[in-house]
């Protein structure tokens, strides 16, 4: 077992793990962050995408021990928790836009898709349709055909730039 110190969604965790523990299994099975999903075993689908020290990574292809000392942010930490009451009030613009633009159906790819998109928008606050499509090439969705995901990312980008979001 190897000692681990990780900050997950703002909370510090000290755990002993087997070195082979994948970060996604650490998050799901040890920390209880089941918002992050596993959709494949070949680093293709992106369902497990989280932020590791601020950058999007596939947490199925990172050992938990590689994240020792690091900060991990998951879908569960994305919304602002301070606004209780209205459940949507604290949502990140991407969470709002996926909802308003119907960018999800079954929702299984959604956490990874949103986390990948959040990093994309940090790098490129005003992506074209094509840039969104290529920026999300590491995330598979089987339900939406991506049309509304692309729309949602661009809608969220507009809101984050402070622009009027058209219907």
């Amino acid at each position: 077992m190897t000692k681990l110190n990780i900050t997950v969604d703002g909370e510090v965790h000290d755990d002993d793990v087997e070195p082979r523990t994948l970060l996604v299994h650490y998050l799901r099975d040890v920390v209880g962050k089941t918002g992050t999903n596993v959709g494949c075993d070949t680093s293709n689908c992106g369902a497990c995408t989280v932020h590791l020290d601020g950058r999007s990574v596939k947490s199925c292809t990172v050992l938990a021990v590689q994240a020792d000392g690091a900060t991990v942010d998951t879908i569960e930490g994305l919304a602002d928790p301070s606004t209780n009451g209205d459940p949507t009030a604290g949502w990140h613009p991407l969470q709002k836009a996926f909802h308003t633009e119907h960018g999800l159906q079954c929702g299984y790819c959604t956490p990874g898709m949103i986390m990948a998109a959040a990093d994309l928008l940090k790098e490129n606050p005003d992506p074209s349709e094509d840039e969104v499509r290529h920026g999300l090439e590491g995330n598979l969705c089987r339900c939406t055909g991506y049309v509304n995901i692309v729309k949602a990312v661009r809608t969220a980008a507009a809101e984050m730039r402070g622009e009027e979001v058209s219907a």
Partner: peptide, 9 residues
């Protein structure tokens, strides 16, 4: 190379 997440790691 790969995709965005792969390029980050």
């Amino acid at each position: 190379v790969g995709d965005a997440q792969v390029r980050h790691r």
